[in-house]
Design a protein around this nucleic acid. Structure first.
Length: 269
DNA sequence: CTTGGGACCTGGCTGC
DNA sequence: TGCAGCCAGGTCCCAA
């Protein structure tokens, strides 16, 4: 599932391949994924545009273009961006043709992904909370903002308006690393626990980026390779397996209809 | 404002 | 063997 480390990795590995290239044509195989504007307008406006830079905000990929618009892509659950894949993929939704003959292919088995072409990126990303890997994200700012939330800490970490980029896997991993039960009310954490959580969030995300993301389910890098961050997971996607610290069986709990994995011994309520 | 539940979407897996 | 139903989860929408 693409979360912050996966989208960051895609951005890093795609950038040198596509910066400076121009779109020579767009093939839309599944109109559902093009959210804005109409498919026809999308194709017309994007064709001929040059890619100036590639950025990430939360889990969104943002292509800055030579004209006044920008291309924004969200991979949601099962999306991937593949550059010149060797095999045809029957989940291909959109093909971006580049002026060096390359094809950038958006595949998405579950059709949940989304693409926009907008004048102002804030119409899409404006509601996002702080980026966890920037200096603005401190233990102090985290503590202050947690005070007004009494929902389970797991639910608050998944709220993109509270903090951008954390998804189900890395929320579970960060809470485990900080030894915090996912059902703890956000405003009940001690300042020591908040410092641990802040460090855990940063460590978990940085470590996953170092491993080029986690390839659970369908996540692939633009060159078709897999990330390895999932092999370092302690609890995420490890229901019934043993806690690497104490050997207790990892439990699953549904929070906001999301599977939450934790160690009942290391993360007590 | 915060919160929590359902919907979207497809495919792999499980159990009868 | 077939098939119903669960599970995976990022985000939007709506109701309380």
């Amino acid at each position: 599932m693409p979360e912050l480390p996966e989208v960051e990795t895609i951005k890093n590995e795609l950038s040198p391949q596509i910066i400076g290239r121009r779109f020579t044509g767009i093939t839309v195989c599944d109109a559902k994924l093009v959210r804005q504007p109409s498919v026809e307008e999308f194709r017309q406006k994007l064709t001929g545009e040059k890619i100036i830079s590639l950025k990430r905000r939360g889990k969104y990929l943002i292509f800055h273009l030579s004209g006044t618009t920008m291309l924004i892509i969200h991979l949601k659950m099962a999306g991937a961006l593949l550059l010149n894949p060797e095999q045809a993929n029957h989940h291909t939704r959109v093909i971006f043709h580049l002026d060096n003959g390359s094809q950038l292919i958006f595949t998405d088995r579950r059709r949940l992904g989304a693409i926009w072409l907008v004048e102002n990126e804030l119409t899409i990303t404006g509601k996002l909370g702080p980026e966890p890997l920037t200096p603005e994200f401190t233990a102090e700012s985290l503590a202050k903002r947690l005070q007004s939330h009494k929902a389970p800490i797991k639910a608050v970490l998944l709220d993109q308006a509270f903090i951008a980029g954390i998804g189900n896997m890395y929320a579970d991993e960060a809470l485990f690393a900080a030894r915090i039960h996912p059902l703890r009310k956000a405003n009940s954490l001690s300042s020591q626990e908040i410092r641990s959580l802040h460090k855990a969030i940063v460590d978990v995300l940085r470590s996953a980026i170092d491993s080029r993301g986690a390839s659970v389910d369908t996540y692939k890098l633009p060159d078709g390779e897999l990330g390895t961050a999932h092999s370092n997971f302690s609890v995420a996607h490890r229901g019934g397996k043993l806690c690497p610290i104490c050997g207790t069986s990892i439990q699953r709990l549904a929070i906001r209809n999301r599977g939450s994995y934790f160690c009942p011994n290391c993360q007590k309520l």
